[in-house]
Design a protein around this nucleic acid. Structure first.
Length: 477
RNA sequence: GGCCCUAUCGUCUAACGGUUAGGACAUCGGCUUUUCAAGCCGGUAAUCCGGGUUCGAUUCCCGGUAGGGUCACCA
């Protein structure tokens, strides 16, 4: 077992079969956060042993996804490291080396069957509602392995296993979980089952964090560790992230999208980090908004959950909003301007937009719905709307005139939110109904049923535009 | 079907034998500078069922039920 003083080494090992979705990202977050918390090492390794399913460009896409959310690694395919290479397809010599050791020990043998024959065994087992076990068909005198057949691991001791999982506690499995699995495929590449064990060994990985679908194959891994006489890393099983129905594990098939889509939708990477970390882990307190550094400082294995959690978009939006609020003025401006059309890039509107969005793509919706038009376009006035809940055009007209009178002699720099609020409220409070002052002013300036309050509108539009619009509105009445 | 795992408000969760079962999101209601948003205040809402163990079970054990994972020359 690993001594307590050993430096923590974790890894994230995706296969380049397309994009990463939130499930993969979260696994990466935990491994990374744990390594950072313990001043350990985090490795990125690419498990590209399935050449058929490999998708061109995946590695770059994976790296881009991880970098966006703020995960960094100490060793990896892009930056190298003492255990290079970090792509399994380039580590074939290692697998062959260990395969030969197993052959010599009489613990690995060539599989003489064709794929079709094995497939028939499987189908038969399935029809009989039995689990498929290759070892039921284990050949008595297998040929010498020449690399053209699959090399299988020979399980010498078919027994029950019991092991400790750092999250689940003691886990067990019957002998049915053990089978002669393929070590090296007929194309010369190793299987995941074999390769990851060799790599973890050579790279000194101390904690293997992965989702719970690997629990059932753990006895096979355990048998392999025994056969090789090697110390195993600590096993940390992560709970699944469930799909929208809350039942099935989230997968690409049921809506799991490319993680980078969240970037396109205008989510903040630190919000994604915060949100994802909290599906399946909780530090125990009531604090929910965590910065990257706080997350690293707080992360622990004890807080990892056993059962799965659902991906809740409403909660994500809330967390994102909380992170937007924490943005520095410069950062906020930078982010918001990125989403605004040229003519709307007015610094003064940033606070208004910021309080109305939960993610930056909401700005796009606001722009498209014309909600922001009044900042640079004179509104079209409707008499009915100006009248609001009264039918007394004279009253409204008088009120608007009163406001106009109060404002027109003020200096330009007097047109602040605070000042105009005092002026307007003083006028409004004299009336029976404050809305008969506030609403027409707001509408005269924005032309919208729903808009920010009249005071901030005055500040943003400035003296000249305010006077102009008030006059125009009065002329309609 | 075999093996394995899981089970607290609608959702994410706190509780590590003793709490009026707490918080957050969502929802509902109220307040403010009578719109909208935001903000603030408040409400509704949960221990899957049945047995044990115990003075006492959300918590420990067993069974049921429901859900999930896995049974590839995929990872």
């Amino acid at each position: 077992m690993n001594s307590i003083n050993q430096k923590v080494v974790t890894r994230f090992a995706p296969s380049p079969t397309g994009f990463l979705h939130v499930g993969g990202i979260r696994t990466a977050i935990y491994s990374w956060a744990y390594a950072r918390k313990n001043n350990g090492k985090f490795i990125l390794r690419i498990e590209d042993t399935d050449k058929v399913r490999e998708v061109e460009g995946s590695i770059d896409h994976i790296i881009e996804s991880l970098k966006w959310i703020g995960i960094d690694w100490d060793e990896g395919p892009d930056i190298g490291g003492p255990n290079a290479p970090y792509k399994q397809s380039e580590r074939l010599d290692s697998y062959i080396k260990y395969a030969k050791i197993l052959i010599e020990k009489g613990l690995a043998y060539a599989d003489p069957y064709t794929e079709e024959e094995v497939e028939d065994f499987r189908k038969k087992a399935e029809e009989e509602k039995r689990p498929f076990l290759y070892r039921d068909h284990r050949p008595e005198n297998p040929p010498a392995w020449d690399g053209s057949q699959p090399l299988r691991f020979k399980i010498k001791d078919i027994k029950s296993y019991e092991w400790k999982d750092e999250v689940r506690g003691m886990l067990k499995a019957g002998p049915e979980a053990l089978d002669d699995f393929v070590l090296i495929k007929s194309d010369g590449y190793p299987t995941y089952n074999f390769a990851h064990i060799i790599d973890d060994l050579e790279m000194g990985v101390t904690h293997v964090m992965r989702a719970d679908e690997f629990i059932s194959s753990t006895p096979k891994f355990l048998a392999l560790y025994e056969a090789l006489g090697i110390e195993r890393p600590l096993l940390v099983t992560l709970p699944p992230i469930m799909g929208p129905d809350g039942k099935k594990k989230l997968g690409k098939r049921d809506g799991a999208k490319d993680f980078l889509e969240y970037k396109k939708e205008g989510y903040l990477p630190e919000a994604m980090l915060n949100f994802l970390a909290f599906i399946g882990w909780n530090p125990g307190g009531e604090k929910e908004i965590f910065s990257k550094q706080e997350l690293i400082n707080t992360f622990n294995i004890e807080g990892i959950h056993i059962s799965g959690g659902k991906f809740n978009v409403e909660k994500l939006d809330w967390i994102n909003k909380e992170h937007i609020k924490k943005l520095s003025p410069d950062k906020l401006k930078e982010n918001i301007f990125e989403w605004l059309p040229e003519e709307l890039q007015i610094e003064k509107i940033i606070p208004i937009i910021a309080e109305r969005i939960s993610k930056f793509s909401d700005i796009k919706v606001m722009v498209e719905s014309g909600e922001l038009d009044f900042f640079y376009k004179e509104p079209e006035y409707s008499r009915d709307k100006l009248l609001y809940k009264t039918t007394e055009a004279e009253t409204i007209k008088n009120n608007l005139n009163e406001v106009l009178e109060a404002l027109k002699d003020k200096q330009e720099d007097h047109f602040t939110k605070e000042n105009t609020k005092n002026i307007l409220m003083m006028i409004a409070d004299k009336k029976d109904n404050r809305g008969e002052v506030l609403h027409p002013v707001r509408f005269a300036l924005s032309g919208l049923d729903k808009s920010p309050d009249p005071f901030i509108l005055i500040e943003i539009l400035g003296k000249q535009e305010v006077i102009k619009r008030l006059n125009k509105a009065i002329s309609v009445l």
